[in-house]
Write a protein that binds this DNA or RNA. Structure first.
Lengths: 127, 127, 127, 127
DNA sequence: GTGGTCTAGACCACC
DNA sequence: GTGGTCTAGACCACC
């Protein structure tokens, strides 16, 4: 649970966000579950507490968790808004790229093939 | 031909690269055509010559143009390698995003719908 | 580590590229190792930071290092692509020259002799 | 006889040198044969006479032709020195590259294969 | 005139 | 602190 690559091009706080989201999506973390405290996680990962705090604040804003003062952070009971917003963000990202590729001369058939090939792969890749 | 938005988040040299690529893709620039000289373009766009130079150097590297010292820059006669590499870059970009979206729980059908909708739009966007 | 000859006909940024590549090839620099920061190296070599930056950018592009904004530059963990591309570049260079020499009337046997003589020399040359 | 590509990366005067040398090597021009006059060639190729002169001067220096004042340029009767110097230049070029490739980790066997493959090709390439 | 290299130094985002 | 971008302007080789 939470493994950080300090040399990755992805900022540390984003790695935490991505991993927390994936754990919720794949039900490793369920509604109501507590997240590690900022302090304990910062010690365990040898990371500045501010970085953890930044990730948790963003996850709160995105509707994935609730931060209860003096108690800690917990996965939201009602994740509907989170999934709604996430899907919207993902779709916009996809549409922006497809517009760019179409404009760049990429034929539709190649994208369709790629899409199907990726979705037909077994979920072999770990997080 | 070449319009720069200095307030864009896209670096100026990338704007030049994108526009040059689009002009070649849409045959506004044809093989053998000269590009504006580094100096003349820098004056016209009020941009430092080094920035133009950086864009042209990258376009040379990508196989879109040949830069002949003392003569100028010209669209490559044989653009095969350019189109091959460009397609490979585009495909990798698409696959990386689709992997991420699949991993993030995005259903295939939504991506298919988006894809078809975008490719059925008339080419209304200008360069 | 990194010695520049400012009077050489080889551009400074290329000297840096060549030396970095050689240090990786001869395991003086190993995967994951940090390279000197742009600023520290520019001070030590009395060279403009832009020149170092240009070399590092090219080495990133060639797949020899990863440049992580705000962290530094590190030798790539997976150098497979770097070695693959390097070999391809080397081979093309060799073939182009041999074609020219053959065309210029050079007999095969002379090239074979040269080749073997050079490869039989002990590795006396230092980096 | 003499075809110039003004957009080539190879300077015009070098193109003339290369073509003149190849014509001698392949006996299109034989000892004693006259070369086109500077003026006639400059008109025919639409090139500055200085450029032609520069090429002829260099060919004289290399021992390929003799320039007889008031008469014109002719292929040298005794081409021994020319071929000796040319071979030396070629060999040095080859050795420098092979040293660099060896230093860059290129295995001998790959170079041997390339060499033989190129020399076994039929002379299909035109000048 | 042309592109190629380099310096000196600014400002940005990210940490 | 780090790398990434950009400006202003110099000097070079080649033509």
């Amino acid at each position: 649970m939470f493994q950080i690559d300090p040399l990755s091009r992805i900022p540390v706080y984003e790695q935490i966000i991505i991993q927390a989201e994936n754990m919720v999506i794949h039900s490793v973390l369920k509604p109501g579950d507590p997240l590690p405290s900022v302090r304990s996680l910062s010690v365990r990962l040898s990371i500045n507490p501010n970085t953890i705090q930044k990730a948790y604040t963003e996850l709160d804003r995105r509707g994935l968790l609730v931060s209860i003062s003096g108690k800690g952070c917990f996965v939201r009971e009602n994740l509907a808004e989170f999934f709604f917003l996430k899907r919207a963000r993902q779709k916009k990202q996809f549409e922006d790229l497809v517009h760019a590729l179409k404009n760049g001369g990429m034929p539709l058939s190649l994208l369709e093939d790629s899409l199907h090939q990726i979705y037909e792969e077994e979920e072999a890749q770990a997080i």
